[in-house]
Design a protein around this nucleic acid. Structure first.
Ligand SMILES: [Zn+2]
Ligand SMILES: [Zn+2]
Ligand SMILES: [Zn+2]
Ligand SMILES: [Zn+2]
Lengths: 167, 167
DNA sequence: GCCGGAGCGTTACAATATAACATCCGCTCT
DNA sequence: AGAGCGGATGTTATATTGTAACGCTCCGGC
């Protein structure tokens, strides 16, 4: 079932982000991976809130702090964070979101609000299994399950006006 | 359950494609939509086989037949075909694949072979419902379900060498 | 005839992503 | 110490994907 929720009114995001950074440091330490200043800072920027950030959005923020930074710098940091499961790529947005559970995130599913951008990751094992079952029937070997559910969170659930998404 | 299969050894693709074109013509006729020569040709190109085609790949083919064609031409045709459900966009590939069931494809799920590119669309209602159930728990209103399963079809199911995907 | 909308041509550009090569720095081996 | 190596980053240029904006044509209704 749903194992995580959309961050609500009383969400302590400062703590949420601090936790995420601590988990990242720990995980990198355990793996002997280097969470360098740039990589760490990109991860922090992504954890600014719970919405996906585009590479060039992150690039601008990094440039604001450090002067000229070229695209490869960002993409390399993102690659590192992706490889270690610290972030996920949202394919339908070309954007990246922090993973709240880097150690066990092989079966994540994303709910993305097209109003405010807030994105929740859940890990519904039964859903993943149902997908694997369908794959089996097809004789298909699964290597990656991309599940991105677009819609509106409770706060943004209005009579569907056209919107300029905050994304 | 799985309602469609990966096209097998005895798949008569000429007939498969002819059917798809007939369905498209019929559906456009019923809706008073114009399946113009360009739109029809783009649809045919997409149905060349069962793998997703990128916009610029289609553009090149169209240019080969008609001389200079600019990107907006392709994207406009793709928009039309998408709006009418005749094709789907594969977000994780920035590419487009024909819909085998244009009249009833709100809940499609895609299995995409990273070896040969072959893509199968199934319509597992229970899977869609499970997603909607999780959404309900989150207080989330679903508008689009993106389910793209990457992996290997039976024919391409080898001991996982690195590959230059045909995609 | 005139208008209005759909379709398409054309130009320019925006947004996203990568290739290729250079530099730096810390480490190990000798 | 000096050579050599690998990982991280800097730098430049370019590839790939997608849109904005404007104008022309055709066709059907009035
Ligand atoms: Zn938070
Ligand atoms: Zn929202
Ligand atoms: Zn076929
Ligand atoms: Zn295959």
């Amino acid at each position: 079932m749903a194992e995580r929720k959309l961050p609500g009114r009383n969400h302590d995001h400062a703590a949420c982000m601090a936790d995420a950074l601590r988990r990242a440091e720990r995980l990198c330490y355990e793996r002997g991976a280097q969470l360098t200043p740039i990589r760490r800072r990109v991860l922090e920027l992504i954890w600014t809130d719970h919405r996906p950030y585009g590479a060039y959005e992150l690039l601008e923020k990094l440039q604001a702090e450090r002067g000229r930074v070229a695209p490869p710098t960002i993409y390399r940091a993102l690659d590192f964070l992706l490889v270690h499961g610290l972030i996920h790529r949202i394919e339908s947005l070309n954007a990246f979101v922090g993973c709240p559970r880097p150690s066990d995130c092989s079966a994540g599913q994303f709910f993305i609000c097209d109003g405010c951008g807030v994105t929740a990751e859940i890990a519904d094992k039964a859903l993943a299994q149902r997908i694997d079952g369908a794959a089996l029937e097809l004789g298909f070997t699964v290597s990656q399950r991309i599940v991105e559910i677009r819609g509106h969170c409770r706060r943004c659930h209005l009579p569907e006006q056209d919107e300029a998404p905050v994304l």
